[in-house]
Simulated scan of single mutants.
Amino acid sequence: MIQEIHSFKKEIDNIPVPYDKLDAIITKTVQATEAGKRTKMRKKMAYAVGAAAVACGLLFGSAALSPAMASIVSKIPVIGSVFSQYGDSGLKRVSENGLTSAVGITKVSGGDSLTINEVFYDGTRLSIGYSLETEKPMGKAYSMLRTGLTVNGKVKGFSGSEKQTELTPTYRTGILEIDPPTDLPDQFKLGLTFQAEDSKQWEFSIPISAQADTKLATIDHKQQAGGIDLAVPEITTGPAGIRLTYNAVSSETNDLVNYISFIAVDETGHELGNHSGGAQSWISGGKRYSTGTQLFDPPSAGTKTLTFTPHLSFPSMGGGVAIDQDGTETPIEFTPHQASEKIKFDSFTVTLP
C-alpha cells in the first residue's frame, strides 16, 4: 500500500503545471463571479463561494506540485500581506503582529482594477498596500501612479514615495508611503486618488485609525553649518520605525535646506534602513525655511542609543506637485542639483525612550 501511495505521488509530481495559464484561469473565475452582481443574493453568494473554492483548489493544488508556485502564491495579497513582501522591516513587523488594518476595497477604471489591501498609521508613518490588475500588460504607463490626498474632505499637500513589484505582466502590488502631516488627527477619513499616465483613475475613501503604541522623545538639538541653522526638536518611536523631525533656516538664495537628510547608527555600528521622508520649504522675510521628517527602520531589541548624522543628499530623479489654496495641482519637474560647496554637520546621540 505504501508503495502504491509513493507511486501515485510520483505521478502527481510529474504532472506539468501550466503556470502561464493559471492567472487567466483565476481571472476568468473571478470575472464570472462579478458578472452575476444583479442576481439574487443567494445566487450571488453561491457563485462567490464556488469561485473561491475553485481558486483555492487551483492555488493549493499547484503549490503542492511546485515549490516555485508556492513562492508565487505566497505573494498574492488575498493570501499574504502586501506589507510582508518588501524589504521594510518596520512594515513586516507590524504585519506579522496583526497591527495593520485590512481594507479590501476594489475600484475599476476602464476594465483595470485597483485594490487597497491594507493600511497602517501610527503617527510615524502612513503606509498603504495595494494591488493592480489590468486587462493588458501594463508597461510604463503604470510604473508611477500620480496620487492625490484629502483628509476629511480637505486637500492635503504631502510628500511620499511608491514601490511596486511585478508578479505578472498584468498584476502588480505596491506600497504608497505618505509622510504624515503633523496635524493629522488620530482618526480621519482618507480620500485617495490614483491616476495612471493613460488617464485611468481610481478613487477611494478609507477610514483611518492610529495605532497607540508610539513614544515621543524631546531632543532640542541645534547646530549651524554652511549658513544653515539646523534644529532637531524630537523623534517618535513606534512598532513600524522611528520618525525624526527637523527644521532648517538659511538665506533666501541658499536652497540646500531642501536636501537635508540623516543617517542613523546604533551603538553596535549598525546603520538603520531609511525608507521615506519629506520636506516642505518656503521663503519669508528674506530667509528660506524648511521643515521635514525622516523615517528609519525600528532598531533591534535592546538598543538604547542612536547616533544621527545630518548630511546633504541630492536625488538623481523625482518630481512633485504644488498645491495652491484652492486645491489646484501643478506638476513640478525634476531638475538635478549641483552643489557648489561641501557642508559637514556634526553627529549627535539620542537616548531612546
Rank of each mutant, 00 (worst) to 15 (best):
G292I: 03
A63C: 08
I116L: 09
T218M: 12
P137I: 05
G111D: 08
I25Y: 13
D183S: 09
T29I: 13
A24D: 13
K215R: 12
A231G: 00
G80E: 12
G227S: 13
L58M: 15
S199D: 13
E11D: 11
E333I: 11
V119E: 04
Q187E: 15
L272Q: 12
I2A: 12
L58P: 01
S7M: 06
F158T: 06
P298F: 09
V54Y: 08
V257Y: 10
A196K: 07
A24F: 10
D326I: 01
D229Y: 04
E267G: 01
T291Y: 05
S66I: 02
T237P: 06
A53S: 14
G57S: 08
G319I: 03
S347C: 11
Q224V: 14
S7I: 01
D266T: 04
M45F: 10
L126F: 11
G302K: 08
T106Q: 11
T236N: 04
F204W: 04
F60T: 13
S101R: 12
F334Q: 09
D266E: 07
D220C: 01
F158C: 05
T170V: 15
T268L: 05
E203A: 14
I116T: 06
K342D: 15
E135H: 02
Q211M: 02
P18G: 09
P207A: 07
A279E: 14
R125S: 15
K342V: 14
Q280F: 11
P18E: 02
L244Y: 04
K28T: 00
R172L: 13
I26T: 09
E271C: 02
A55R: 02
S109I: 02
K344Y: 05
K28A: 15
K37T: 02
S84Y: 03
G111H: 08
L149T: 08
V232S: 04
T328M: 10
P137K: 06
I219D: 05
S71E: 14
K136F: 04
E234C: 05
L352I: 03
T173G: 13
L272P: 09
L190F: 07
F83Y: 10
D20K: 07
K37G: 00
K92Q: 15
G238H: 05
V151D: 10
E96Q: 14
G148V: 05
Q187N: 14
V232D: 06
S159C: 13
T307V: 09
K156T: 06
S284A: 13
L190Q: 03
F60L: 15
I175F: 08
T168I: 03
L126Q: 10
Y86A: 10
G148P: 06
L272A: 12
S250T: 06
S340H: 13
S161D: 15
A24S: 14
G160Q: 05
A32R: 13
S300A: 15
Q201H: 00
